[in-house]
Design a protein around this nucleic acid. Structure first.
Lengths: 101, 101
DNA sequence: GGAATATATGTTCATATATTCATGTGTTAT
DNA sequence: ATAACACATGAATATATGAACATATATTCC
């Protein structure tokens, strides 16, 4: 049990992050990037079977929010996790028994 | 580093939870309830300085989603965490240095 | 029963989000 | 230069969300 609440600033930031990855597609992307250090847009959209532009929109959104970083290499743009903390969230949730929901 | 992605079902569930608490007010509520086992609607709205109906809406929303549970005692309705896993998420995020964002 | 308190609910509004489509930009190879 | 590929972007649309307000319900006390 905890003893102290999060301060307002922290609440805002945490909520911001949770909201940013609280979507099946985006969570899948982050999940993929927790295993594969870097992936191209095409890698991701192929793996997740999702439209290129949709994936791209979500990737740039998460990049804008500081969650991902990207670099171009030739024709490809590779994305990777920037905010490593999201990894912890996923790891945590992974171990949870969510069947009750 | 992780070695295996979440299956689709799990992704859906985790995203569902993250979205459900990925809001400053709702996160604050969950945060409060991580310290105080049970709190009435009024306790919460007073503490967070938020409108009664807004708090109530969010509480019943989270209850509907299986995150909170409630019981009535006289005029009061007490809410508590039902899905203990969200506690882990908060604990995890609490320890993160989010200043980079 | 009526007042007072605590909570819930319905409605409305503004705004945010998700998705799709068409098109634009950057890069490589010919 | 142009074709082909990878990616980004903007517009349009449907839908969801957050907040506020008024009102309804439940409970207690008189």
């Amino acid at each position: 049990m905890r003893t102290k609440t999060l301060d307002i600033k922290k609440v805002e930031k945490v909520a911001f992050i949770l909201k940013a990855i609280g979507n099946p597609l985006r969570l899948s992307i982050v999940d993929l990037l927790s295993i594969q250090d870097e992936l191209s847009v095409k890698d991701i959209s192929k793996t997740l079977n999702a439209e290129q532009s949709l994936v791209s929109h979500n990737l740039s959104g998460m990049k804008l929010k500081g969650i991902l970083a990207s670099r171009r290499e030739g024709k490809h743009v590779y994305y990777k996790l920037k905010l490593r903390e999201v990894l912890k969230v996923i790891q945590c949730m992974e171990n949870c028994d969510l069947d009750a929901i």
